[in-house]
Design a protein around this nucleic acid. Structure first.
Length: 527
RNA sequence: GUCCCUAUCGUCUAGAGGCCUAGGACACCAGGUUUUCAUCCUGGUAACACGGGUUCGAAUCCCGUUGGGGAUGCCA
C-alpha cells in the first residue's frame, strides 16, 4: 500500500517553526517513500481559525516549496462524520454520557475493558497500589476513583479507567477482599449499573495491562492502562473534540503514517483505541522532538522571532530555512549539512531523527543562509535582491542596471538579504559618516590634500575600476603617501563607512564623477 | 503529585560493545591570503551529567540519582 502522510495544522495565526518543521519532516518522509503528502486544515476552533491564518499557512508552505497531493481537507466539512462516529461509539458501548443521560452532557470515550485481544495491548502482570488507609474506592462504568498517599504523606485523589484494573480486588488492611471486579459485574457496571463505593480499603490488587506501540523515531513505547483515563470526545455543546475529529479524519483520509510533535505521544495511546473501536487499522507513528529557544525553553510569545514569516522578512532564503530546519533533530549521518532538496529526500530517514529537543541557533542558520546566497547564480541573486529591495524606499529611484552592478559586487559578502539595507550609499550620498572613520581618514591634512587631488583626477578619468586604482596610486606617489593609503579615506568620503567591497569597483559602481562630487562634499562638510 | 520521554564540545550533531587518546558543522581563538571588511585557507580551545552494575572491554547494554521536556483541558 502506498504510504499516506498528512500535515494537519490548526490555522491560528502565525506559522511557528516547530510547526513548519513538522510539515517539512512529513513532506520529506512522504517524498522519500514515494507516498502521498496531504494537507488537512483543522479549522474547528472557530474562534481562532481565520481566513488570514489559513492564507498565511498556505503562503508559508508555498514559500518553502512544500507541495501537497490531493485536495486540502478542511476539518469543518467533516463535522457530521465526527458525530456519526461518536454515535457509533456510543451504540457499541465504547463511549458514554457520564451520570444521567442528557442532551447537554459531554460524551466520553471509554478505554475498552475487554481489550486483551487488541494487538497493541499486553498484560504486564499482577500489580498492587497502596491506598490512603481506610479510604473509599468508587467503582463505576466511568472508572475507578481512589485515594493514595503522596511521598510526603498527603492524600491524593486518583481517577483511572476501568480497563486499567483487570481482575481487581479491593483489599482491606488485612488483605481481606472487600470487593472483586469480575467480568460479570464489570459488564453490569459498563451497561449503566450503579457505582459501587467500597469503604475502608487499603490496597488495590489487579492485573496490570499496558498499551504499546513502536514509534518510528522513539522506538518501543508503552503506558500502563491504570495510568489512563476515559476522555471527552464530544463537548456538552455537541462539538467534537480534537481526539475524535483528528482520528476520524485520519481514517477517512486513509493515513498510514502520522508524523507529529512529541507533545502528542500521550494522545497516541488513546488514539490507538479509537482507531480500533472505529473499526480501522491504526497507522504507524513518528513523534518529532520539540524545537526550543536559545534558553533551552519552549518558544513563547516573548521570543517573538520563531515564525516563518519573520525569517522571510529577515532575509532568510526559503531553501536555507528548509535545510536548516531539517538539521534540527535530524542528520544525514555522513557529515553532510548543506544539502539540496533532492539530496534530503534521498537521505531522509525517520529512524535517524533525534529523541530529545533541539535548540534553534540563529547564528548557524545565518551562516547556512550565507552559503546559500554565495552559491546562488548571480542572475538569480540579482533578481531576488531586486525583489527584496522593494522593501527599501531607495529602490524606487534606482536604475535596474546600476542595481545589478551593485548586486554582483556585493553578493559574496551578503549573509542575510536584509544586508541590502546597507546598500543605500551606492545610490545616494551618505547621510551619516562613521565618526571613527572621519577622524582617522578625513581629518589629517595630508590625506585631505591628497583626497582633493584624487577628486580632481576623478573629474576626467575613465569610468572603470582600473582607472580609479591608477589615479589613486598616482596621487599617493605624488604626495609621498604609502601605497593604498588613500583607499580608506576615499571609502569614508564616498560611502560614509569603513568596510565594504573593493573600493575601486565600489567607485566604479557609484560613478567616478559622482564620487568626485562626494569627496568634495565630504571634505567641505568636515572642514 | 502521577505517568511518559530524554541526556556526547556553548549550540546542532556523528557514534548501534573493541575502528574513540570521541569525528564533523556553527560560534570562539591564533596564523595565513587580501587595498578595508567579509570570504577563503591552516591550526587550536572545547563534550560522553553523576553513581552503581554487566563484560576481557562501555559514550554505546542494565539499574538508580540528578537535570531537561511533555502529558495529566469540554485546547489542538
Amino acid at each position: 500500500m502506498q504510504p499516506r502522510l498528512r500535515f494537519a495544522p490548526s490555522p491560528t495565526g502565525q506559522v511557528h517553526i516547530g510547526n513548519i518543521r513538522t510539515a517539512i519532516f512529513n513532506w520529506l518522509a512522504a517524498r522519500h517513500m514515494g507516498g502521498k503528502f496531504i494537507l488537512r486544515i483543522e479549522d474547528t476552533d472557530l474562534e481562532r481559525s481565520t481566513k488570514e491564518a489559513i492564507d498565511t499557512l498556505l503562503e508559508c508552505m508555498n514559500w518553502l516549496g512544500l507541495d501537497y497531493d490531493e485536495e486540502v481537507l478542511y476539518q469543518t466539512t467533516q463535522a457530521q462524520h465526527h458525530l456519526d462516529a461518536a454515535k457509533k461509539l456510543i451504540d457499541d458501548g465504547n463511549a458514554y454520557h457520564p451520570g444521567p443521560v442528557s442532551e447537554h452532557s459531554p460524551v466520553y470515550f471509554r478505554i475498552p475493558y475487554c481489550c486483551d485481544d487488541y494487538p497493541f495491548v499486553r498484560t504486564v502482570g499482577p500489580a498492587t497500589i497502596a491506598l490512603a488507609s481506610g479510604s473509599d474506592v468508587v467503582v463505576s462504568g466511568a472508572g475507578l476513583t481512589f485515594t493514595t498517599l503522596s511521598p510526603k504523606g498527603k492524600p491524593v485523589e486518583n481517577q483511572a479507567c476501568l480497563a486499567g484494573f483487570k481482575d481487581l480486588a479491593v483489599l482491606d488492611a488485612d488483605d481481606k477482599p472487600l470487593y472483586e471486579l469480575t467480568d460479570d459485574n464489570a459488564c453490569a457496571l459498563l451497561s449503566g449499573g450503579e457505582p459501587v463505593t467500597v469503604s475502608g480499603a487499603a490496597k488495590l490488587k489487579f492485573i496490570r495491562r499496558e498499551v504499546f506501540y513502536d514509534d518510528m523515531v522513539k522506538g518501543h513505547l508503552s503506558k500502563p492502562l491504570d495510568s489512563m483515563r476515559d476522555f471527552i470526545i464530544v463537548r456538552s455543546d455537541g462539538s467534537p473534540v480534537f481526539h475524535l475529529a483528528n482520528v476520524c479524519d485520519d481514517i477517512t483520509q486513509n493515513i498510514t503514517l502520522i508524523v507529529r510533535g512529541d507533545d502528542h505521544v500521550e494522545n497516541t495511546y488513546r488514539h490507538l483505541f479509537m482507531f480500533r473501536t472505529l473499526g480501522a487499522e491504526p497507522p504507524s507513528y513518528a513523534h518529532l522532538p520539540m524545537i526550543v529557544n536559545a534558553q533551552g525553553k519552549p518558544y513563547s510569545k516573548r521570543d517573538g522571532d520563531a515564525f516563518v514569516g519573520d525569517f522571510r522578512d529577515k532575509g532568510v532564503l526559503p531553501e536555507a530555512l528548509f535545510n536548516y530546519l531539517t538539521l534540527l533533530g535530524w542528520s544525514s549521518g555522513d557529515n553532510r549539512e548543506k544539502m539540496t532538496r533532492e539530496e534530503l529526500v534521498e537521505a531522509f530517514d525517520l529512524a535517524r531523527v533525534q529523541h530529545s529537543p533541539a535548540q534553534f541557533d540563529a547564528v548557524k542558520m545565518a551562516n547556512l543562509n550565507g552559503q546559500y546566497i554565495a552559491a546562488l547564480d548571480p542572475a538569480v541573486f540579482r533578481e531576488r535582491a531586486w525583489e527584496f529591495a522593494a522593501a527599501y524606499p531607495w529602490r524606487e529611484s534606482v536604475d535596474r542596471a546600476a542595481f545589478d552592478r551593485v548586486a554582483n559586487l556585493m553578493q559574496s559578502r551578503t549573509k542575510l538579504m536584509t544586508d541590502l539595507a546597507a546598500w543605500t550609499y551606492f545610490f545616494a550620498v551618505p547621510v551619516d559618516y562613521d565618526p571613527k572613520g572621519v577622524k582617522k581618514f578625513l581629518t589629517p591634512d595630508q590625506l585631505r590634500a591628497a583626497l582633493a587631488k584624487a577628486a580632481e583626477k576623478f573629474d576626467s578619468i575613465d569610468e572603470n575600476a582600473k582607472a580609479v586604482e591608477d589615479a589613486l596610486r598616482a596621487v599617493e606617489n605624488g604626495d609621498g603617501l604609502s601605497q593604498f593609503a588613500l583607499n580608506q579615506p576615499v571609502r569614508v568620503a564616498v560611502c560614509g563607512v569603513t568596510v565594504g567591497a573593493s573600493i575601486y569597483e565600489t567607485v566604479e559602481c557609484i560613478g567616478v564623477r559622482e564620487c568626485a562630487r562626494r569627496i568634495r562634499g565630504a571634505l567641505a562638510a568636515t572642514a
